[in-house]
Write a protein that binds this DNA or RNA. Structure first.
Lengths: 228, 228
DNA sequence: CGTGTAGTTGACGGAATTCAACTTACGTGG
DNA sequence: CCACGTAAGTTGAATTCCGTCAACTACACG
């Protein structure tokens, strides 16, 4: 888990990113997260925590991208979620992590002891409310993930692109931080199907692909239509 | 988790002391659900609450079976969960229900105002803990649902049967309360595929089908193998 | 006994996977 | 700077799996 990775340093970041607060969490509180925590860095593909390890920490992503995943006994991999800067992850209701977390790109996180947050929450009902809200968003995210998984390949990919575009919220061009394999494992498809579906979408002028990781949403209405 | 200490999910405790609460095993609390609530009955297929309605109540199922579902704009239906006697549902973190709930069979529930429970939880950290644990189980349930949905039809059906058998916990014969359509919408398959898969499993001697709703698990190992 | 609902089965077509070849991007060392 | 090696992504052809459409059976209820 925490142990086997990379340089601890970079306290400079600490103050720089204290203002970078995701919209959902009120500002003053979010800072407290940074105040309490330690900054840590993880190299691309490094494991942040493993499945079944005790869930001792909460992580707030400062930069980079993180995925949570689970390896099934036949080797297939399911990706539970992608986390972007500002997101908080590692959040479990149980004492153990159900999925592992890995850095997709080099990533910087702020780490706080879960027990500390819970102690705070016990005293401060406002913190408690926020934990509650986080859980609610997690439930909602999972529900939407389930809805994606019952659809056709086109619908899944279109839905995924819209989700990412909404989260990254760069006008219409999205730089995907994750590989085709990651996307495939998130959507329950194969890389070939993801790849083919993207070129189909490109041919139908719904998107453009300047490079394999950069995607321009040309026609959101068409994507949303696919998203049914 | 909660499973055996929680009283929220234990219907049999009804008559225990509601006032005296032993510190270690807070039995009396559970009854509080029944104490606070009103009993209500719903006929087969009746709606208990609708999508997007304000989430004013919590429901503890006394008898019967309940499903939560969501209708997509193209008419498809996704079933979020099945609830069996003892289960608590209607539990939302947001102020609105994300899915509707319907009685699959005639059902009896105990209804309590959410605000009352939350008020209680604010004063009694033990109640709060139980709400928390319930949420945790819900998250875990959803995660397992996601895991089902990335698999093949055989794996989904096998996984579903094992899940139901574990929850109904009647030796090896399970009486399914829900229709093939319900199962299909839960698993993201068609009724035909569910039906065919069941007969395939029967032909491979993994299960027996004395009647369409009654299923005998003949070879759990084989089912678990399919469940990968 | 007929009617309606639920479930099963068959034939067929389409969608996604599999296996394989090929292209592109990228870094490293000669 | 280029040649090379590797990892990531794309494309093609064959196959498998699941959905669709339709017919048929089982069963409950009037």
């Amino acid at each position: 888990m925490l142990s086997h990775t990379t340089n601890f340093s970079d306290t400079t970041n600490f103050s720089r990113n204290a203002r970078f607060v995701p919209p959902a969490i009120p500002r003053g509180r979010a800072d407290s997260f940074e105040m309490m925590g330690t900054s840590m860095s993880f190299a691309r593909n490094a494991e942040i925590y493993g499945e079944n390890e005790p869930a001792e920490y909460l992580y707030k992503l400062v930069s980079g991208t993180v995925r949570t995943s689970k390896i099934l006994n036949d080797g297939r991999r399911q990706i539970g979620a992608f986390y972007l800067p500002g997101d908080i992850f590692g959040f479990e209701v149980s004492t153990e992590h159900g999925l592992s977390a890995e850095a997709i790109t080099d990533a910087k996180v702020i780490v706080v002891k879960r027990s500390a947050v819970e102690a705070l929450a016990a005293r401060d009902s406002d913190i408690a409310r926020q934990l509650w809200a986080m859980t609610g968003r997690e439930l909602q995210r999972m529900q939407e993930h389930i809805l994606l998984l019952i659809k056709s390949a086109q619908e899944r990919v279109a839905g995924f692109l819209l989700e990412m575009a909404a989260r990254i919220k760069s006008s219409n061009e999205v730089e995907l931080p994750m590989s085709r394999q990651d996307i495939a494992d998130y959507l329950g498809l194969t890389i070939e199907t993801v790849s083919r579906t993207l070129t189909t979408l490109e041919n139908s002028a719904a998107i453009a692909l300047p490079s394999s990781r950069r995607i321009v949403l040309r026609n959101r209405a068409a994507l949303r239509r696919l998203n049914a």
